[in-house]
C-alpha cells in the first residue's frame, strides 16, 4: 500500500509494470491515470495547489477506507501538484485483488474520493486569464453511491 504526493512527473508504464509484478499473487490489477484536459486547445497550463500537511494523511485515509471495504492485496495512489502542461499526467491509482470486481470498484471509489475529499485545488491558465476549477454537483453526487 502506498501513497505519494509529488511535483515530479511519474512514469505510468513503469509504475503499472512494477505494481503488477509485485501483485503477482493477486489475479487482477486495475490502473487508472488522469490527464490535464486541454479544453479544445484553450488551456495553456494547470496549476495544482495542495495542503502539504494534510494531503498525504487524507489520501492514506481514503486508501484505508477502500481496503476496509474491499479485498485488496495492494493499492497505489500517486498525485502530482504544481504547474502541469496540457496532456500531462496528474495522478494515477492502481488496485490489486484476487478477482477483478474488487479491483475495479475500489479504483472507482478511490477516484471519486480523490476528486472531492483530498485537499487539491486546480487553477486553469488560458489566453483569457486564469480561473479556479469549480467542484461540480456531479462530483458530490458521485460520493453518495458509496
Amino acid at each position: 500500500m502506498s501513497v505519494r504526493v509529488q511535483a515530479e512527473a511519474f512514469d505510468y508504464g513503469a509504475e503499472c509494470a512494477a505494481f503488477a509484478q509485485a501483485a503477482s499473487g493477486a489475479g487482477a490489477v486495475v490502473t487508472f491515470c488522469g490527464l490535464v484536459r486541454d479544453n479544445d486547445g484553450r488551456l495553456q497550463a494547470m496549476e495544482i495547489e495542495h495542503y502539504p500537511g494534510m494531503t498525504q494523511t487524507a489520501l492514506e485515509q481514503i486508501e484505508a477506507q477502500a481496503r476496509a471495504r474491499w479485498s485488496l492485496s495492494d493499492a497505489l495512489i500517486v498525485h502530482r501538484f504544481g504547474r502541469l502542461e496540457p496532456g500531462a499526467m496528474i495522478m494515477m491509482v492502481a488496485t490489486a485483488s484476487r478477482h477483478r470486481a474488487d479491483a475495479f470498484v475500489a479504483a472507482e471509489f478511490l477516484m471519486d474520493y480523490l476528486k472531492s475529499r483530498a485537499p487539491f485545488w486546480k487553477k486553469e491558465f488560458g489566453a483569457d486569464g486564469a480561473t479556479w476549477v469549480a467542484a461540480t454537483d456531479a462530483d458530490e453526487q458521485a460520493l453518495r453511491r458509496w
Binding site: 476528486k115 472531492s116 485537499p119 487539491f120 462530483d139
Partner: peptide, 9 residues
C-alpha cells in the same frame, strides 16, 4: 485551514 471545495483527481 479554509479552502474552497476540493478538486483533486
Amino acid at each position: 485551514a479554509f479552502f474552497p471545495p476540493m478538486t483533486g483527481g
